[in-house]
Simulated scan of single mutants.
Amino acid sequence: MQTSTTPFTSWESTLTWLAGPPLRIVLIVVGALVLRWVVLRAIRTVVDRAVERADDHERTSLARALDVASGVTEERRRQRALTTGSLLRSIATFTIAAVAVLTVMAELGLALAPLLTSAGIGGVALGFGAQSLVKDFLSGIFMIIEDQYGVGDVVDTGEATGTVEEVTLRVTRLRDATGVVWFIRNGEIVRIGNKSQGWAVAPVDVPVASDENPHRVIPILNEMLADLAADEAWSDVLLETPTVAGVEGVSGGTMTLRIFVRTRPGEQYAIPREIRERAKSALDAAGVRGPILAPYAGPEV
């Protein structure tokens, strides 16, 4: 007598059915959950170590000064590590879930070939329609991972120059000097000029009379610059004592002396005004004459 294989007609048939696809489906789901837990734990461990290095890593005084100047602080490293970890967790979860769903569908006897073919055709059509969106997302991912810029940086994207207010995977939001907010798609950014990393150089031109002796004027300016560097209000802004490069040009009754100032990024706009004010006071006190202007001849008759 042949035993019936229809499930739930007997204990033997029920156990045989449960040991088949249902058990394999449960094992697939459990295996996917365990694999996801292991992968997320590994990602979390890597991120925690990166955060710990950002919090506890010892740096030399020069490296610390450069970090402060560039804005690449421990908090910024920590935020980048957390953002990258969140991105990796999302990718891992999606990949494991997709593979698990397809495997369960195969166990249920569903034909995957037509589904994958339809998905492939739909994916190609969607890819053509959303290729710019994919490009924006990929560009945004690499911008975050590589830390090309962050919130608060002053950047030149080619389309606009301004302060970064928000960075997402799809767009970057800038606010320029006039207050206009620019929304720039990450995929459209071909080049990035970050004015808030490393250091900045501010050239300052000081005009004096062309018949003044530069060997007399330059020491006066150097003394003024040394006093500026010793001033506590500006010592944190300057990365080194400014120097007078020399005579930049002589035109008409004007001799132009150029000063180079290496500052923290973002401070290259305020320090030139302070230098010009101090240079004016120092040169006036030393009796150095300003540019010689040609007399006004009046309108032509």
Rank of each mutant, 00 (worst) to 15 (best):
V46P: 01
R59Y: 11
R53V: 03
L62I: 07
L15N: 14
S70C: 01
R41M: 09
T16E: 13
R64L: 13
L35I: 10
T14I: 01
G71C: 05
V30F: 13
P21L: 03
T60A: 04
R76A: 13
L33I: 10
V30P: 05
A19S: 15
V51Y: 02
V51E: 14
L66R: 11
R41K: 15
W37E: 07
V29W: 02
I43Q: 03
W37L: 07
T60M: 01
G71R: 04
A19I: 00
S61R: 13
T73N: 01
D55H: 09
I43F: 03
R53S: 08
T16H: 10
T45L: 15
P22K: 05
R36T: 14
I25Q: 03
E58I: 04
E75C: 00
L23C: 05
S13F: 01
T60L: 02
V34Q: 09
A32H: 08
A19R: 14
L18T: 05
G31C: 06
T14W: 07
I43T: 04
A50H: 07
L35P: 07
E58Q: 00
W11S: 13
D55V: 07
W11C: 08
P21F: 08
L27M: 04
E12H: 07
R24G: 09
L66P: 02
R36A: 13
A42R: 09
T16G: 10
V30K: 03
